[in-house]
Every structure is written in structure tokens, then in C-alpha cells.
Amino acid sequence: MEKYDVKKAHKELYSPPSKDFVVVDVPELRYIAVDGHGDPNTSPAYANAVEALYGVAYTIKFASKNTLGRDFVVGPLEGLWRADDPSAFVTRRKDTWQWTMMINQPDWITDDAVRDAIEAVAKKKALPALGDMRVLGLAEGTCAQILHIGAYDDETPVLDRLHHHYLPENGLTFNGDHHEIYLSDARRTPPAKLKTVLRQPVKAL
């Protein structure tokens, strides 16, 4: 049985270069998602959301394999980040951040399949985020992105370069939430070796 892997099916979206920004066209993709706010390093709601997402994602995977005969690799954790003041990302004022954490789902996974998985996980463990989980269709369109290698808190120079140099120099401006794709497992990877796709939907000025 061949496994679907979103990172291979959309290689150009998940493997940008690490030196220069590139522009990509992102089609509509489906996710399971949970919204929240606050510092991801200290917020219990953030940890709960991530645990719930992985629990549901793996439950969906095994159900798809067993009942549909279609297997897939669980996608990486992804996050949409926003703040009333965009400079909060460059200054790392994390307590003001709002987020939507999410995991991609193959297009054959139905809303009913997601609902069944949420119910199955809820029977095993009480996770408040399960009640807030939703299916999200996201069509970002034209985006600038780059691969950041290093600690999350070391993203600041890259984001500063994006905001104050790359976008204005190329006649572009923001057109959606800052998007991060976590290709590494932070629990097992040294901070200096973490790989994160930094993506920003853009439009012409």
C-alpha cells in the first residue's frame, strides 16, 4: 500500500531553500485545526491543542488504513500566527500572539471521518481542545517562503528581512496570516537543527 505524504505530493511547498525567499502558489488544502492565544512555550491551551491534534490525526490515519485501505503519513504540525500589532512577531511579544494550530489531511478524509475520530479520542482522554477542533479549508494563494534552520526564537532576523526588505523591494505586502510548518520534532531535535518553513501570503502593492 502506497502511503500519501503531503510533503512529497506538494514538495515545492514543504522544501524551500534556506538562503533566499521563493514565491509559490499554494492551492486550497484541508486541515484539522484548533484556535487559541498566548505564549506557546507556557500556555496550557497550546500544549492541549497540539496533543489533541496529534491524537485525532493518528486516529484518522489508522481508520483510513483499516476501513478504506488508504494509508498516509501524518503531516507536520503547522501554525497560523497573528497579532493586532504585526511587530509583535519581530519583537517576540508572545503573550500577544493568536494562533491556529493544524495538521494537513488528505482530500479523501471527510468531515464525518474527522468527527468520528474526535469522538474516539474523547472516549480515551479528556482534552478540552477536542471540543474546539474544526476542519479548515485554507487557500493561501501567492506566498513568499523560506526554510529557517535553527531555534524558533532565532527567526527574528529572517522575519525582519522579509518584512522590511524582501516584501517592499519586490512590491509586495501582507495578504494573510504568518504561517509556520514545523518539519522537525522539537522534542528530539537540538534547537540549532530545527527546520521550519516560514510562509507569508502576499499580494502586489
Rank of each mutant, 00 (worst) to 15 (best):
Y58C: 09
Y31V: 08
H179T: 10
A122G: 11
G38K: 01
P201W: 01
E155R: 04
E2P: 15
N175E: 10
V6L: 10
H164P: 12
Y46N: 07
R199H: 08
H148V: 09
A120N: 09
T142D: 10
D132G: 15
I118D: 02
A45Q: 14
N175L: 05
F89V: 07
V22E: 06
D95F: 03
F89A: 05
A57M: 02
A151M: 00
A47G: 15
I146V: 14
H178C: 09
P16R: 03
A186D: 08
W99Q: 02
T173G: 13
L183T: 06
N104M: 04
Q145C: 14
V56E: 00
L138S: 13
D107E: 15
I103G: 02
A33K: 03
V158H: 02
L138G: 06
L162P: 07
R115A: 15
P190T: 07
N66Y: 02
P86Q: 07
L205V: 15
C143L: 08
R187Y: 04
Q145W: 00
K123W: 00
T156G: 10
A192T: 06
R82Q: 12
K65P: 13
A117N: 02
Y14W: 09
V26T: 12
V50M: 05
E180H: 09
A144W: 08
E140N: 09
G55I: 05
K125M: 08
A33M: 10
H165C: 05
F21E: 02
R92S: 12
E2A: 05
D25Y: 08
Q145M: 14
L77M: 06
A49R: 01
P201H: 03
S18P: 11
V23P: 10
T100C: 14
E51G: 05
E180M: 09
K125S: 09
S15F: 10
P16F: 04
S15K: 11
V158W: 00
H165F: 09
R134N: 08
I146Q: 03
G141A: 08
T42M: 11
P190H: 05
K8N: 11
N48C: 14
G176K: 08
K3R: 15
Y4Q: 04
P16M: 06
L167K: 07
G36P: 11
E78L: 10
N170S: 11
K8I: 09
L167S: 06
I149R: 05
L29M: 11
A47P: 07
D5Y: 10
H179D: 07
E78Q: 12
Y31T: 06
H165D: 12
P190A: 11
L167T: 07
E51F: 05
Y46V: 04
V22M: 05
V50L: 05
R70W: 01
N175K: 10
A204N: 13
D71C: 01
L194V: 00
H178M: 13
V74I: 06
A47V: 03
P157Y: 01
T142V: 11
V22P: 11
D25K: 14
L194R: 12
L138V: 09
L162R: 02
K8S: 13
T42P: 13
K8L: 12
T156E: 13
K3Q: 10
T173M: 14
Y4S: 04
Q105H: 03
R199P: 13
G131T: 04
A88Q: 06
Y31S: 10
L159E: 06
E28D: 12
A49F: 00
F72N: 01
V26A: 07
I60K: 04
H164G: 14
A192W: 00
